[in-house]
Computed example of a mutant assay.
Amino acid sequence: MGQKLVGILLNAAMHRGVPRLKTGQESLESYEEAAAAYGMIPCFLQLSDINPESGFSIAYVKGRQGYVRTVIPTPGVIHNRAIYSQGSTGIDRLLGQGLLIFNTCNRYGKDQIHGLLEQNEALQCFLPDSRTGMSGLKEMMNRYSDLILKPCRGSVGKGVMRLSRISARRWTWSYLPSGSRRWLSSTVDPQALPRALRLRFASVPYLVQERIPLAELSGRPFDLRVTVQRGWGGEWQVTGMFAKLAAPGGFVSNIARGGEALSASAVLDQVFTGSAAACIRMSVTSLSLSIAHQLERSLPGLADIGLDIGITRDQRLYFIECNGRDQRYGFQKAGLSGTWKDSYRRPMGYARFLLEEPARYIRY
């Protein structure tokens, strides 16, 4: 295989950090290693530097003196790691010129994903009961005693709240004030919800879900982050999984909100018996692949996702949410450096596969 170019599309802020090796959670070194394994050279792009009419782009390419902005023929295959919603005119323009971009859109509403999965009868039993908006909140408060409230388009646990019934006329509202890492709670009347809560619902769409009684380790609830990716050959594969433990006293497991990443096998083996832990891992793998196959039917270019899967004390599985731009650093924090490297290697394998077999690029 001769060396070929592969594009890595970054947002503008991250792209500016490439020459200084300041790209946040994205590992340039891992991209270099993964691309080289498939005979490719990674070129780090931003959307404004791609000229589809000329067929050339300006990209950061690594040389002897580090990363230098270089004019290159626009790579035929691009892995999108920037944040774009469906219908991005810039991405659509590139696709119209015949470029093969995977993970074209990576910002989906939680309500949208829930609706797509709900269309598959076999997956319905893995979905928490959900509603949207203030009317949905009132309906759910009549049906359940413990609720999780999530912004439909929020990420890393930002804006998540909890409502728990104490009595017929008293609920506990738990939330994280803006800029704080300390959760606050107050008692509220269900017939007169606090203005601050109502304002949040008025400002952005919210998804209201029954709170799943997640299994716990040392009193801390946890779920599993499962990375599901296409690799060489184009088929979906589970690259790996790790456990996310909520902070002590907390109820969200996001690492950015004080959660902790640990080996999934180590956590499951401590919480469940050996045979049950092995069965859960296999079931989580099977469920994750089924979810990816269902989503790909409606989401063009899908190739690299992170799924949060919850497990109850009685070993029942629940889909929690889908991350269209999986932040892979949790593997590294969990001590799973080999899997962390694999999470970069697999998309590069898919990119090389598309370069060799462009007709296998999935369009809908």
Rank of each mutant, 00 (worst) to 15 (best):
275 S>F: 05
29 E>N: 09
302 L>S: 15
278 A>C: 05
211 R>P: 02
354 L>N: 08
134 M>W: 04
190 P>H: 07
274 G>P: 02
307 L>D: 06
279 C>Q: 15
153 R>Y: 10
296 E>R: 06
337 S>Q: 14
255 I>N: 14
316 R>I: 01
59 A>F: 04
218 S>I: 01
173 W>E: 10
53 E>M: 05
349 G>S: 14
156 V>L: 09
340 W>L: 07
362 I>W: 00
198 R>W: 04
212 I>R: 01
153 R>H: 10
327 Q>W: 03
222 F>V: 03
133 G>P: 15
148 I>F: 10
12 A>D: 15
50 I>W: 01
358 P>E: 07
27 S>A: 09
264 A>M: 10
234 G>H: 09
20 R>P: 00
13 A>P: 00
37 A>V: 02
344 Y>E: 05
216 E>N: 02
218 S>A: 14
236 W>K: 02
240 G>Q: 11
236 W>C: 04
61 V>W: 00
32 E>R: 14
184 L>K: 13
44 F>K: 01
235 E>D: 15
47 L>A: 12
290 S>V: 00
361 Y>G: 13
210 E>Y: 00
309 I>P: 14
256 A>Y: 07
129 D>M: 10
362 I>K: 08
195 R>V: 03
13 A>F: 05
328 R>I: 00
125 C>Q: 15
122 A>Y: 00
252 V>E: 11
23 T>F: 06
19 P>F: 07
39 G>W: 06
21 L>G: 04
22 K>T: 04
26 E>T: 12
197 L>F: 12
53 E>D: 13
130 S>A: 13
187 T>R: 12
54 S>A: 12
341 K>W: 06
276 A>W: 03
108 Y>L: 09
89 T>E: 12
18 V>Q: 05
103 N>S: 08
222 F>H: 11
346 R>W: 06
226 V>A: 03
196 A>K: 15
212 I>A: 05
243 A>G: 12
230 R>W: 00
48 S>K: 11
287 L>W: 05
264 A>I: 12
